[in-house]
C-alpha cells in the first residue's frame, strides 16, 4: 500500500459490478446457446395442455435442457397450486 493510495478515494468499485453482471450474463447466454430452438414453443404448448386440467400460473412451469458429453436431459418442472385452489 503506497502513501498515495490513502488520497485515492474509492467511492464505488464499478469494475467489480461490471464483472458480476458479465459473469451472470455470459453464463446465461452460454447455456441458452446450446438449447434446441423449439424449447420456448414446447414450453408454451405444454403450459396450454396442463392448463386444460389444472390452473397453474404461467411461471409455474419450467423447461430445462442440459447437455452432457454423452446424454441430453430435458427436464420439465411444474409447480402445482395448493389443494384448496386445485380442480376449480
Amino acid at each position: 500500500m503506497s502513501l498515495l493510495d490513502y488520497f485515492r478515494i474509492n467511492k464505488s468499485n464499478t469494475a467489480s459490478l461490471a464483472k458480476e453482471r458479465l459473469q451472470i450474463l455470459v453464463a446465461h447466454e452460454r447455456s441458452s446457446k446450446n438449447q434446441p430452438s423449439y424449447l420456448p414453443k414446447l414450453q408454451q404448448e405444454l403450459l396450454e395442455v396442463i392448463r386444460k386440467y389444472i390452473h397453474v400460473n404461467e411461471d409455474a412451469i419450467s423447461v430445462n435442457f442440459e447437455q452432457d458429453d454423452d446424454q441430453e436431459i430435458l427436464e420439465l418442472n411444474i409447480v402445482l397450486p395448493d389443494f384448496n385452489t386445485k380442480n376449480t
Binding site: N10, S16, A18
Partner: peptide, 16 residues
Amino acid sequence: VKLGDMLSVNDVQDIL
C-alpha cells in the same frame, strides 16, 4: 484498473 474503474486482465480472463 487500480482505482476500480476498469475490468482487470484477470477479470476478463475469468469471464472468457
